[in-house]
Amino acid sequence: MTGPCPVNDDRWLATVFAVPLILLTLVSAYFCWTALTIRPSGAWDDDAYAGIVLACVMSAGAAGVAAAVWVVPAVRRVLGWGWVVPALVLGVVAGVRWATGG
């Protein structure tokens, strides 16, 4: 009598877990790009500064969620550091842009 053939689910799990990380990294990249390309017309341009802050918050938030997804042990088991580093870098860039104020 033979039992079921053991199946290696790592490839399937990597695909399933990579999708949200990729999407969150793309969202973070879009908002980071937006924060870096907004140029206020002057010191009086409060709307542009508010847009920069909002884009930075969204970029850092998406990067934080990506890091939170990656911290789950099942995700870390199949996806290495290379999957979360781009999101973390984008989050840091957005944080620096936010801190410098435009």
Rank of each mutant, 00 (worst) to 15 (best):
T2P: 01
G3M: 06
G3V: 06
P4C: 05
P6C: 05
P6E: 08
P6F: 00
N8D: 12
D9S: 00
D9G: 06
R11E: 12
R11F: 08
W12L: 11
W12S: 03
W12I: 10
W12C: 03
L13S: 10
A14K: 07
T15G: 15
V16K: 05
F17M: 05
A18E: 13
A18V: 08
V19W: 10
L21Y: 01
I22Y: 15
I22L: 15
I22G: 12
S28L: 09
S28F: 03
A29G: 11
Y30M: 09
Y30G: 14
F31N: 02
T34W: 11
A35Q: 04
A35M: 01
A35W: 01
T37W: 13
R39I: 13
G42I: 12
G42L: 10
G42E: 12
A43S: 14
D45Y: 05
D45R: 13
D46N: 11
D47C: 09
A48T: 02
Y49G: 02
Y49N: 09
G51K: 06
G51D: 11
I52D: 02
V53H: 01
A55E: 01
M58P: 03
M58E: 12
M58L: 15
S59R: 02
A60M: 03
A60S: 13
A62P: 02
A63M: 08
G64I: 00
G64C: 02
G64W: 01
V65R: 05
V65H: 12
V65M: 10
A66E: 03
A67C: 07
W70P: 01
W70I: 11
V71D: 13
V71R: 09
V72Q: 06
V75H: 00
V75L: 04
V75K: 00
R76N: 05
R77C: 08
R77N: 09
V78T: 02
V78Y: 02
G80F: 01
G80Q: 08
G80T: 11
W81S: 07
G82V: 05
W83A: 10
W83C: 08
V85T: 14
P86D: 06
P86F: 04
A87K: 01
L88Q: 14
L88E: 12
L88D: 12
L88K: 05
V89S: 11
V89I: 14
G91C: 12
G91F: 08
V92N: 10
G95K: 09
G95N: 11
V96S: 12
R97C: 08
W98Q: 08
W98E: 13
T100L: 14
G102D: 15
G102N: 14
